[in-house]
Amino acid sequence: MSSEKTISIVMAGVGGQGILLASEVTARTAILCGLQVKTNEVHGMAQRGGSVIAQIRFGTEVYSPLVAEGTADALLSLEAVEALRFYSYLRPAGLAVVSRQRVIPVTVSSGGAAYPEPEPALREVFSRLLYLDALAEAQKLGEPRAANMVLVGALAKHLSLPLESWEEALTQCVKAKALESNRNAFRRGLSLADDFL
């Protein structure tokens, strides 16, 4: 990656899924690489089970903390339909790292709305899609709450920041008792992204 260009990443999901930690680890990695970093996150009302996004930008000089639509280099989504909701942030050749996990909104359960079959739409909308069962992978590792780190691992594979920085960022951002499971989840994500170009 050229350090000239500012890299923009959008992370999407449902309030409470762990976007904040995913964003923190990514930002920390960029700081460890000596880059300027700006991030933005959602607080308050939207956190109560609503759609949420976090934005991370890093490079030699960063002005706006917000990512303009159509310019994100990567979109990471912890929930399948949320990836579609925020698809327009991604630039046409950008990378989408999406979890197969579905969180059914109340508007579907108790209202008339339908939860669409996401895969065909995701494949249609994203030219580069990594569609992973991050929750199942994390469950296999014994910690379903580390699904976010599986996705971060897959993302890391495609951002050319050095692996040592990611590992160091994990150590700095994750609480000691959860570090092992998060590190394993991160490495699992890395290897899952191996076969993907």
């Binding site: 698809y87 249609e124 909308v125």
Partner: peptide, 14 residues
């Protein structure tokens, strides 16, 4: 638009 986002089920805070 490459996808009609307005057709997605809304996810308001609850």
């Amino acid at each position: 638009a490459r996808y009609a986002v307005e057709t997605l089920p809304a996810r308001p805070p609850v």
